[in-house]
Nucleic acid binder design. Structure first.
Lengths: 216, 216
DNA sequence: GTCAATGCTCTTGCATACAAGATTTATCGT
DNA sequence: ACGATAAATCTTGTATGCAAGAGCATTGAC
């Protein structure tokens, strides 16, 4: 329970940003956060410095911290990179997966099927996350997995918006099927291509995102 | 000159780590750093929190901060991701480069030629960095460019070791030539493939890296 | 002589205090 | 009445102080 205070604050504030409790552009007042969490300003500042280093907030000298607002264009760029990393994870997974990896992937895929056919988009959201994390793990690249998890986390709110689009859940699940097939067949290039397409938000999916962002 | 103290400390310590002044595994004593830079412990701690968030150091509760030592395997993983990101940057650059981008890339390439044929591997190191940054910029993806620069920076010490290997500078420059050609020809897939190969450290280049690391 | 236990010291973690810049409000002048 | 300037207040940035835990040394026992 010692250093955990800063770590706890970091997670709490980060979650607050991701769950949109702290909206983009919002000011993060140090004393306010300190009293809210029942600590002094020091650990709050240390947590904010970490979020600043990650790129979630911006600290303007003498003017406080604000939640960064990545415009639609930058969000698109982030998905572009995410697609590339997922593609790499998929291709590595196809070459390196073990029996345990196969089991985990198939289990997550089965859960996705359940929540998808039940039409439960919230449940699908979590099962989808497990599915993708199973692929990261199967890539057997710790660094890649970390990068993917971090980016996935940052894109969480927008991913969530996307699933609200009509039929997106069903489409997503269908794509998962092909991805699983490619990976388990050991087809690295096919897995890479499919995952890249699955993750990237080209064409009308980008328009949908912009529209949903604007209406928020 | 206000918040810049923390930022300055962050950069100084980060540079110290990258230039191996603070070797992997070294303890970073707060008071020691504070007196060394003529400040109090508070900004030092805040800088350390940032480096911790980036993943350059590890802060063990009540036991201080140590420089992270990524073993050879993890370094390989980092190069693997770097290769993928550079490949993406190259493919985007091939599709999006402007006249100004072409000029910058060619200028950096010309500088590389100078330092390469002069056999000056230190100079080549810097020109090489400019060359790669020119490609990031030409990708016209701000987020991708940031990610590339950050990873490039973290891999700096190992990249530097690599250039010491016999003929690596000449080989590197030759690869640059083909990359420039592919990008300026607008051949996105070729640019991606060449850059990926250029950056990744497969086969004997990995052995060289491990050997050089061990002898350090 | 060696191992273990206890106490001391040193470092970290958090809080508070103080200083400096930014913002807001109030007052004065036109 | 509106705008500008100055003062007051609020917030951030840095230093210092205090408490608690981890490491180290010394001493005692077997």
């Amino acid at each position: 329970m010692s250093e955990n205070v800063v770590q706890r604050l970091r997670d709490e504030i980060e979650n607050g940003i991701i769950s949109n409790d702290f909206a983009p552009g919002a000011r993060l007042d140090e004393v306010q956060l300190a009293t809210r969490f029942g600590v002094s300003r020091t650990p709050v500042r240390e947590a904010l410095m970490q979020l600043n280093a990650i790129g979630l907030i911006e600290i303007r000298p003498r003017r406080g911290a604000v939640v960064i607002d990545p415009g639609p264009h930058r969000i698109f760029e982030m998905f572009e990179v995410m697609a590339e990393l997922e593609g790499l994870a998929g291709s590595l997974a196809a070459r390196r997966f073990t029996d345990a990896d196969r089991t985990t992937i198939l289990a997550a895929h089965a859960d996705c099927e359940r929540s998808s056919s039940a039409g439960n988009s919230d449940a699908y959201y979590y099962d989808n996350e497990r599915f993708h994390k199973a692929i990261y793990a199967a890539s057997h690249s710790g660094f890649l997995a970390e990068q993917c998890v971090a980016l996935h986390r940052r894109l969480q709110p927008y991913r969530r918006l996307q699933l609200r689009v009509r039929n997106r859940v069903a489409t997503s699940f269908a794509e998962h099927g092909a991805i699983v097939e490619a990976i388990l067949a050991g087809d690295a290039e096919q897995a890479r291509t499919l995952l890249r397409q699955h993750v990237s938000i080209q064409g009308e999916r980008f328009s949908d995102l912009v529209a949903t962002l604007a209406s928020r």
